[in-house]
Amino acid sequence: MSILLATLLYLAATVFAAGILWKVFSYARLPSRNLLPIAPAPQTWGGIMLRMANEAIFFASLFRANKWTWLFGWVFHYALAVVLLRHLFFVTDSIQPWVLMLFPAGDIAAWLMIVSLAGLLGRRVFVDRVRYISTPSDYLLLLLIVLLGGTGLALRYVVPVDIMATRQFMLGVLNLSPVELPKSTLLYVHLASAIVLAVIFPFSKLIHFPGNFFSPSHNQKYSAGK
C-alpha cells in the first residue's frame, strides 16, 4: 500500500504541477488585444496591483455580490490555507517552530473549513438559482474536499495516527526513497482524496486559481487621463 500511495503521489504531483504550468503558459500565450477592464478601472499600475490584491485577498467583488457566499467562500479559502501550512510539518526536513505554533489555529481552521463547505453546499442545494446552475462535478468537488477535511479531522480526533511515522513516509517520498506508511484506512482515504483533488485540479474549475490573475476585467488599466 505504501508503494502504491507513493507512486500515486508522484503521479499526482506531476499532473498537478505540469497541468497548472501548462494552463498558465497557455493563458499567457493567448492574445489579449482589447481593453476590457471593468470600470471604474485604475489608470496606473499601482492601482491595478491594489485592485488585484483586493480581489485576491478580500474577494472584494464577491463581497459586493452576496454576503453569505462571500462569508463561506472567504472562510473556506483562508481555513484551507492555514490547514495547508500546518501540513508543512509533514514535508519539511526540520520542523519549523512557526508550523508547530500553527497547530491550535489549524485545529480551528479544519473545523471552519468543514462548516464553510457545508455552507457552500447548502447554498447549492437550497438556493434555487444556484441549484439550477450546478452540475454533478460542482457537488462532487465540494464533497471531495469535505472527505479530505473530514478524514483529516478524524485522524486528529477519532483514530489518531502516528504523525511522526507519517512524516517519515512523506519525507521518504520527497527524498525518492519511500518508507512504510502507518497502517490506517483513514489515512489511506485522506491521501487518496488529496491525490484525486490534485489530479483534477488543472482540468476543472479549480483552475480559477491561477485563472483569476489572468482576468482582463481586473488586470488591465486604462491609459492615463488628460
Binding site: 493567448l30 482589447n34 464577491l62 455580490a65 452576496n66 446552475i133 480559477h208
Partner: peptide, 23 residues
C-alpha cells in the same frame, strides 16, 4: 478560444458560485 485570452479564462474559471445569478 485560441485567439482571445479573456474568453478562454472566462470559460475555464467559473466556479458556479452564483454571485451573478441575481444581477
Amino acid at each position: 478560444i485560441r485567439s482571445n485570452r479573456a474568453l478562454r479564462v472566462f470559460l475555464d474559471s467559473c466556479v458556479k458560485c452564483g454571485a451573478c445569478t441575481d444581477k
